[in-house]
Write a protein that binds this DNA or RNA. Structure first.
Length: 426
RNA sequence: GGAAGAGUGGCAGAGCUGGUUUAAUGCACUGGUCUUGAAAACCAGCGUACGGCAACGUACCGGGGGUUCGAAUCCCUCCUCUUCCGCCA
């Protein structure tokens, strides 16, 4: 959520940001509504505060009078209080309604994109930030997509997942399960090497946590919801991990805070089904290692570059052909100011698959969560939050299987062998 | 799941027979005095949010609601924690 003070002082920037996101014109009007409501709120509060102050004073006097036995005078004052209350009338409830409305409207305004983000409608307008190096791999005519390879080598089973749960819940087995576990451990170890503290968070979160990171309100439909306990299954470790510091005022010395966590991720994503979402390309449950950072504002973009390098290193080590995109305004997620998407090329499917997304949210999440720090002058400031996948597993597995297939079997990337304890899947 | 008790400012902890509590006191923390320096001692400051140039005002004693002229204090409700019992990886 944007800060009210920022909207007030930088209305043009906010509008220009909406423009680059290709937001509909109605959203522009919300900005004016917000500013109007805020003025209303301010005058309401000033009024109510003064009246309450009067009541407080009178009540104090009544107390004194009762003590000194002057009940008559006290009772007379009670009538004065009643008058003041009448003056307040519905203003107090108006005040709280106005504040609530204001918050709801603020929730509707997305983050202002970083100046480097280009205007664009959809993923077709994304810019290539780091192009793929060298030629794209070409496989033989008989190359198979990962869902066929999985069947051939008995690595994961989507039909069994259907039997046990439903569509989109893969069951990994044998070397498929071991490969999955190897990747998780490898990614966690690499994050640890770079100074991230490992976290195992709860997989269900409450409403406040969902609001903190921006998964709520509005996006309820994308999360699994346990009605009986009013809890949500996490769509990413970002939600529980970022909310660790919800409502906290940190010490400057604590920053930066670097956290990593492996969790399964649950996404309802009632989207389309078809050839392009076959196999592991899109599932309701997948595994992911997430990295999360809390930074001082002046350091957050350097941190983003570090994260970019981190993910780049992982993909290079795995030997997967990839490119990095800088998302255009229209493809940027609601809370993000700048996002880099990583896409891995699937040689068998002959298409790019998104495997990671690294974003700087600046103060958008921290303003919702009220996560601040005291700077050198002891002034409270919102921190910047960042996060990224390092990495999301399902599609990485798909690409490893497809790109590394040989007549003898699927070769395991060198860096994973200490974890898998086998070199080839055959 | 059942029973009992409890949730107060960074921590500890009073207040909880409703009215100088505008939340005592201690510790921690910050600044100052003293000192060669430090410690000790002493003095002062020391929560968050909103409004206001400011003085200051308002709200917050787990969350929400209620009673009252007035609520940390009484009532209702939800949440959490502790102890005991039950169940259980």
């Amino acid at each position: 959520m944007l800060e009210l003070s920022f909207i007030k002082e930088n209305k043009d920037k906010v509008l220009e940001g909406l423009e680059r996101r290709c937001y509909p014109a109605e959203t522009t009007q919300i900005i004016d509504q917000i500013l109007d409501l805020n003025e209303q709120r301010k005058s309401l509060q000033a009024f109510v505060d003064v009246k309450k102050s009067e009541i407080n004073k009178l009540s104090g006097q009544i107390g004194q009078l009762f003590k000194s036995g002057e009940a008559d005078k006290a009772n007379a004052l009670k009538e004065d209080v009643a008058k003041v209350k009448e003056e307040i009338g519905g203003k107090e409830s108006q005040l709280s309604e106005t504040s609530e409305q204001l918050t709801l409207l603020l929730y509707k305004i997305p983050n202002v994109p970083h100046p480097s983000v280009v205007k664009g409608q959809s993923d077709e307008d994304n810019e290539v930030h780091i192009p793929h190096k060298g030629d794209l791999p070409v496989l033989g005519e008989d190359a198979k997509p990962h869902w066929e390879l999985a069947k051939q080598y008995n690595l994961f089973d989507l039909e069994l997942g259907v039997k046990i749960t439903g569509a989109g819940f893969p069951l990994y087995r044998g070397k498929g399960a071991k490969l999955e576990r190897a990747l998780i451990n490898y990614f966690l170890d690499e994050a640890s090497k770079r100074g991230y503290e490992e976290i195992i968070p709860p997989l269900l979160v409450n409403e406040a946590s969902g609001i903190g990171t921006g998964s709520l309100p509005d996006k309820e439909g994308q999360m699994y919801y346990v009605e009986k306990d009013d809890l949500y299954l996490i769509p990413t470790a970002e939600v529980p991990v970022t909310n660790i510091y919800r409502g906290d005022i940190l010490d400057e010395a604590q920053l930066p805070i670097k956290l990593t966590g492996y969790t399964p991720c649950f996404r309802r994503e009632a989207g389309s089904y078809g050839a392009h979402v076959r196999g592991l390309n899109r599932v309701h449950q997948f595994n992911k290692v997430e990295i999360v950072r809390f930074e001082k504002p002046e350091n957050s973009y350097a941190a983003l570059e570090e994260m970019l390098k981190h993910v780049t290193d992982l993909l290079e080590a795995l030997g997967l052909p990839f490119r990095v995109l800088r998302l255009c305004g229209g493809d940027l997620t609601f809370a993000s100011a700048l996002t880099y998407d990583f896409e891995v090329y699937s040689a068998a499917q002959k298409r790019w698959l998104e495997v990671s997304s690294v974003s700087n949210f600046e103060t958008f999440q921290s303003n919702r969560m009220k996560t601040r720090y005291k700077d050198a002058n002891k002034k409270k400031q919102l921190v910047h939050t960042l996060n990224g996948s390092a990495l999301a597993l399902a599609r990485i597995v798909a690409c490893i299987l497809e790109n590394n297939q040989t007549a003898e079997g699927i070769t395991v990337p060198e860096v994973l062998r200490p974890y898998t304890k086998f070199d080839i899947i055959d």
